[in-house]
């Protein structure tokens, strides 16, 4: 009994020191795993350039989880910045405001491209969004009728594609990439094949038709990958006729194993994405708590440091890691908006 009293005293003592030492000394960041590599590059460079600030702490966890943590409130034990691979949703912003995070500043840092790649030794692919919709859509148009997807091989989708069983490794539903994939590939393909019109004709409302278009077949030909791109690569390693969806950065690092396909005739690259020619790309963001700006040491400097040309410009380490830079005018506008204190 003596022991347990002593032990509980220790617990209480530790908790007390914990609360006392809580003054936030460093920037705390969490969110999208797509933005994570860029955020860590900037955090590392920021710490190296400013030895008097402590290095920021960067967590991944995903856009949704990061924004949830971000919207918990204002104060020392909440995070200062949430990384996001999609714009914050209206309901998330409402949750933020309800918890006291009334002033949120949005920073757009650049773009991310999604590429379609297969094993390096396989043939070249040139896709249209319609091909992907016909390959992995749940219901497709066949002879003017909506039917459950009958295509078993890529050669069924389009003449000229190899005689491979369809095996597509696509981002899972909680992946930030999934939304872009659904919008720019599946929905675009759905409209191109007129399946969308058929859904509307069958009596579905517009929103429901769009949902039906984005539905993926569940017979095992399309596999959701909820983990990282490494897992997708491992799947392609073991199934040489599989096609995977990757981030541009990941593909650039594994060019010796992967062959990239063109989409609508455009090959994905930093240039084609920055110019908006390559159709499957998305903007990347982070969100800052304005209330923390004067309180957390270095937060304002960190945001400005992030937006410097040396960090996210065309010749920056982030771009070397796969970020697609925004045009200079856009970057300047983002910095000006931040400095003017523009909030959502």
């Amino acid at each position: 009994m003596k022991f347990s009293t002593a032990a509980s005293a220790i617990v209480l003592g530790l908790s007390a020191t914990g609360t006392a030492a809580l003054a936030a000394e460093q920037i705390h960041i969490a969110g999208s795993s797509t933005v994570l590599p860029y955020a860590t590059i900037v955090a590392e460079a920021f710490a190296e350039a400013n030895p008097n600030f402590k290095a920021p702490i960067v967590e991944g966890g995903g856009t949704g989880a990061g924004l949830k943590e971000f919207c918990k409130g204002v104060g020392d034990d909440t995070i200062d910045i949430a990384d996001a691979s999609r714009p914050i949703k209206a309901e998330e912003l409402d949750a933020c405001k309800a918890a006291g995070v009334t002033e949120v500043q949005e920073i757009r840092i650049g773009y991310d491209g999604i590429v379609f790649a297969s094993d390096i030794k396989g043939p070249d692919f040139a896709y249209e969004p319609a091909d992907w919709f016909n390959a992995i859509g749940a219901q497709v148009l066949k002879d003017g009728q909506l039917v459950d997807n009958p295509n078993a091989k890529w050669s069924d989708v389009k003449a000229g594609f190899p005689d491979w069983d369809i095996a597509a490794y696509i981002p899972g539903e909680k992946h930030g990439t999934r939304e872009v994939f659904e919008l720019n590939v599946l929905l675009a393909g759905c409209k191109a094949t007129k399946a969308y019109d058929a859904f509307i004709a069958s009596g579905l409302a517009k929103a429901d038709a769009e949902k039906a278009c984005a539905k993926v077949r569940k017979d095992g030909k399309a596999v959701d990958i909820d983990g990282e791109y490494n897992e997708t690569l491992a799947r392609i390693d073991s199934n040489k006729t599989g096609i995977g969806v990757f981030g541009l950065a990941f593909y650039e690092n594994n060019k010796d194993k992967l062959k990239v396909a063109t989409m609508s005739g455009i090959s994905p690259s930093v240039e084609t994405i920055a110019k908006g020619e390559y159709p499957v790309s998305r903007p990347l963001f982070f969100y800052v708590k304005k209330a923390h700006l004067g309180v957390v040491p270095g937060l304002k400097d960190y945001v400005e440091f992030f937006l410097a040309d040396q960090m996210i410009g065309p010749r920056s380490p982030s771009v070397a890691k796969g970020l697609v830079p925004a045009p200079k005018s856009e970057r300047e506008q983002v910095l000006a908006d931040f400095q003017a204190g523009k909030t959502l």
């Binding site: 030492a21 994570l36 290095a55 702490i57 967590e59």
Partner: peptide
Amino acid sequence: IGMKAFIVEYPTTPLDP
């Protein structure tokens, strides 16, 4: 509890990240 994070600096006490 946030221990999967990018942390450069050594923690000096158990209260540091």
